[in-house]
């Protein structure tokens, strides 16, 4: 058992944990930050993704004590950070995920959103191909990824003041309405 300290979502915390605990275990079971999820516990799924000094990192493979002095961001940190910088509501990316239906069971999403956050930090206007690659270490079993891509694109569009193309089902429904309206 060692005591060590690091920054979590902007706060400096001191934690006592055995050396063989992972960051994931410390976050979830010591700090109560259960937003970070566990899907495989051995690096295969990305559910436990957090940001370490801004980079997406797998908490399940990180020895807790090794983050001594580092800056960790978990999903719980995004909204407070957004508010602190004068924003309202949730982080725009979180909001976009909600707005675009990207959240089904939601279990992959904390990790997914943090991977997307890191992408936008270094590339504010990614293409779909870039989005695909940046999220390719986060497995989602529910969505087929489409609405996740749309959410990231929607957040980008909102930040840039542009609009996104109609989704397949929207375009098709619009067509259907037009057909119905014409006598």
């Amino acid at each position: 058992m060692t005591v060590f300290s690091f920054h979590i979502n902007g706060d400096r915390v001191e934690v006592a944990a055995p050396d063989h605990w992972t960051l994931l275990e410390v976050l979830r079971y010591r700090l109560g930050l259960t937003g970070t999820k566990q899907g495989c516990d051995k690096g295969d799924c990305g559910a436990c993704t957090v940001l370490v000094d801004g980079r997406p990192w797998l908490a399940c493979l990180t020895l807790a004590k090794s983050v001594e002095g580092r800056e960790i961001t978990t999903i719980e940190g995004l909204m407070p950070a957004h508010r602190k910088s004068g924003g309202a509501g949730a982080d725009p990316l979180q909001d976009a995920f909600d707005r675009c239906g990207a959240l089904q069971c939601g279990f992959c999403q904390p990790g997914m959103i943090l991977s997307a956050r890191a992408l936008l930090a270094r590339n504010p206007r990614p293409t779909r191909v870039e989005i695909r690659h940046a999220l390719s270490g986060n497995l989602c079993r529910c969505t087929g990824y489409t609405q996740i891509f749309e959410a990231v694109e929607s957040a980008v569009a909102q930040a840039c003041g542009t609009t996104t193309a109609a989704r397949a089902w929207e375009a098709q429904r619009e067509r259907a309405c037009e057909r119905e309206d014409t006598p």
Binding site: G43, G46, T49, R55, P56, W57, L58, L61, T62, S115, H133, A134, S136, G137
Partner: peptide
Amino acid sequence: VAGPQLRAM
């Protein structure tokens, strides 16, 4: 190698 997070780590 692997995926994005693992390449960062």
